[in-house]
């Protein structure tokens, strides 16, 4: 019993932190910038395959390749913003369709260039093997991922709450017209915020790669894992995202270690449905970042 409790506690933290890392960028883009980023899943592909491209095909050392892949994500997001978001910002159905189409196109092209049998693998393991925590044991790399997620969360909070750029982003989120009237350079700030918010997806993908799938069709699944806590928590509210991530982490850990791992996903989906039916605007119904 104690053993199961250890597993539940440890893996709630581990899984929850992982989902938090996936969801952070999405919650900022969708909640703060109010762009429902249906192309978010493509960022994971750009990160993983970008790193592989620079490292394996071009011959850049791994750390350099990761940095270049993150720059590639930034460039991709910027182009996406200029070409699709700016064009369709007022036409939401077109914006959704456009972003979704781009995601599918990236997925198909990646699958064509790097089919699964190529064996794309990112050797980004920092802690190999498993680490004992109480009665439980955890793959070391999961601890790395969790730490990275929490650091990103902290950086986001500091950026959004303590910096001028963050203040401007929050101002735009609250009232775009008023922000514009106050002299905010709307377009530039929006682009900058979207680019910054897309980086965590890349960092998490690269860090989790040694213990998670890396294949051309992983984007949709990671996107779902990003969207669940972001929406459940209340879009744009990092505190809500944090709580929701650990709720989903707890469901997965509890089902996985105490009931039946087969039901992990199904139960979490049903719980999210029920919570959304009761609290239709997420757990934290706030219009603030924290």
């Amino acid at each position: 019993m104690l053993e199961a409790l250890d597993y539940i506690v440890v893996y709630t933290l581990i899984f929850g932190s992982f989902y938090l890392g996936l969801a952070l960028g999405f919650t900022v883009i969708t909640g703060v910038l109010r762009i429902f980023h249906l192309g978010y899943g493509a960022l994971f592909l750009v990160a993983a395959y970008g790193t592989w491209l620079f490292c394996n095909d071009i011959g850049v050392e791994l750390p350099g390749a990761i940095v270049l892949a993150l720059i590639l994500i930034a460039a991709f997001t910027f182009v996406l913003y200029r070409v699709v978001v700016v064009k369709f910002i007022e036409v939401e159905d077109y914006l959704l369709a456009g972003l979704f189409a781009i995601f599918v196109i990236i997925q198909e092209i990646v699958s064509y260039v790097y089919p699964e049998t190529v064996g794309v693998y990112l050797p980004t393991t920092i802690i190999s093997g498993s680490v004992p925590v109480g009665h439980a044991s955890v793959p070391g790399q999961y601890i790395v991922v969790s730490t990275v997620s929490l650091v990103i969360m902290l950086v986001f909070l500091v950026f959004l709450l303590k910096t001028k750029a963050g203040l401007i982003i929050r101002a735009i989120s609250q009232n775009t017209t008023a922000a514009k009237l106050c002299g905010v350079k709307f377009d530039r700030t929006y682009a900058l915020a979207m680019v910054i918010a897309s980086i965590p997806a890349g960092i998490i993908m690269v860090t989790i790669a040694p213990i998670w799938p890396v294949n051309p069709f992983i984007g949709m699944e990671l996107f779902s894992f990003a969207m669940l806590p972001a929406v459940l928590g209340g879009l744009g509210n990092l505190r809500g995202t944090l709580i929701a991530s650990y709720i989903i982490g707890f469901i997965h850990a509890f089902c996985g270690f105490a009931i039946n791992p087969r039901l992990m996903l199904l139960v979490s989906l049903v719980v999210v449905l029920v919570i959304l039916a009761v609290r239709p605007r997420g757990i934290v119904e706030a219009e603030t970042v924290w």
Partner: peptide, 14 residues
């Protein structure tokens, strides 16, 4: 009771 992205997510989960 639900709208926007919350409605989208709700229907996406079904």
């Amino acid at each position: 009771i639900s709208r926007g992205v919350y409605f989208v997510l709700f229907t996406l989960i079904l």
